[in-house]
Design a binder for these strands. Structure first.
Lengths: 250, 250
DNA sequence: TCATAATTGATCAAAAATAATCAAAATGAA
DNA sequence: TTCATTTTGATTATTTTTGATCAATTATGA
């Protein structure tokens, strides 16, 4: 049994049990304790395990948790209900865009077990999907630490090189006249992702419906499907403009 | 049986079993052990397999991805000393590359108050520099959750569009013969960043000096400055190959 | 705290595997 | 065929790996 093979075996046992003893490894593998000790020393040097007296332990992944938190405090229940409904439309094999808004972020929890590819410019989304079956593609460019997202020319060029079956986006406001953004960056990003998608899902809780801001960046034709907990008169108007509206109840 | 036929047979056995022994191959193929050894040496040189004592392994069997948290826990003090020295060379206005290694990551703590631009493919680096005076540019592409980094074709293209005054990089091993990487992704990334930088700083703790791995990706000419806590005979050899060596004490 | 037991690191020797050298055999061209 | 080249196998020195031994260190319980 070579060193490489023993390394494999030790890591396997470690993964399964969390810790191992030298005595036990020596008999299990069929080599002397001195050899096992040498193996463990070498592996510890490479950071594959943590050496203890008489054995070794797994190095905890929790030493330094890298985290990009999303502080989406408002209207959480509505956002979750909207995203739960939107996730039902996502099927294995899909390639989807998720933008850096607090609404689209809530979609992550519902897609963790799907076999899809997610393209995003949101750091919290990447963080949230890290330990899932989803493959992640991160848009490159300048990092906006306030928004915890990537933007800039390079980012929009990057988006332009991809194509997705569905895009899950948010806006600052949506009214009959069009779509409103909170910043030019958000507007550019939304446009870039929408133009590269077959089907654009707009995720808007009730507070966004009818709201306008200083920056109207596009008319409603950008949107294919609106998912919302709102149920007022504007909804029929959106419908008449070619948007399918998925209503959810909170 | 010709060399080509034997090569084919060995690869077949390797594919099926994952590993082979020289003794076993010699009897199976009907040639002497010396010949088998010669075959394996030649194949290993071409990267078709990994040579072990008494046999060979499939490269894919050998690769054991080590998580970022694991690597980060090793030789912390040496890494900090190295990065502290390296940071002294970074001046306001610099544009620098930082790679996704655990050594270069330790550089973050020393540059938080500098007015520089950092281009990186490392998620922990972005996280660490979030609340600092540094402007961050994140490389886009596929996210590798084990290494906590971005890689892939898109990433290397992205890097090629930038230019930096300095690059702070790590390797798996550095010896007189050249630079060794832990994976092809790491190799591609290191090359991409180095080629777009005026000055390449290689950050290596003592355990990396003289170490080799299965993947040699470049000779030493890539490196301008080596920062290390190692002080042995190899250092003068590096010096004679045109590398400036900055020695630090832990 | 101290004493006892267990574990470790260091050194050394044996065994196995390898690299290097050289001669024999096979191959191929003139 | 003959000569040169390549390939193979035997031999030997060197290196690597492994296991044993023992002093030094560390953990544990009285």
């Amino acid at each position: 049994m070579t060193f490489q093979k023993r390394t494999h075996k030790i890591l396997e046992l470690l993964e399964h049990h969390g810790e191992v003893e030298i005595r036990q490894l020596a008999t299990e593998i069929g080599v002397s304790e001195v050899t096992v000790r040498r193996d463990l020393a070498s592996m510890a040097k490479d950071g594959l395990l943590y050496r203890t007296h008489g054995g070794a332990m797994k190095i905890s992944e929790l030493i330094k948790p890298v985290s990009f938190a999303n502080k989406a405090a408002v209207n959480l229940k509505a956002k979750d209900a909207i995203c739960k409904r939107a996730a039902e439309d996502i099927i294995d094999g899909d390639v989807i865009f998720i933008d850096c808004g607090s609404t689209a972020f809530r979609l992550c929890q519902f897609i963790k077990n799907k076999k899809i590819k997610v393209i995003t410019n949101s750091l919290p989304v990447v963080n949230e999907l890290q330990h899932s079956t989803v493959t992640i593609n991160l848009i490159g460019g300048e990092v906006d630490t306030t928004r915890q997202a990537v933007h800039g020319t390079m980012a929009y060029e990057h988006i332009a090189r991809y194509h997705a079956s569905k895009a899950f986006l948010g806006v600052d406001g949506i009214a009959a006249e069009g779509l409103y953004a909170g910043s030019e960056h958000e507007a550019s990003n939304t446009l870039a992702m929408a133009s590269q998608s077959d089907c654009v899902y707009m995720l808007c809780d009730a507070s966004k419906i009818g709201k306008t801001s200083y920056l109207k960046f596009n008319d409603l034709s950008l949107v294919d499907i609106l998912v919302s907990d709102y149920n007022g008169p504007e909804v029929t108007e959106f419908g008449s403009k070619g948007i399918s509206v998925l209503s959810v109840t909170v």
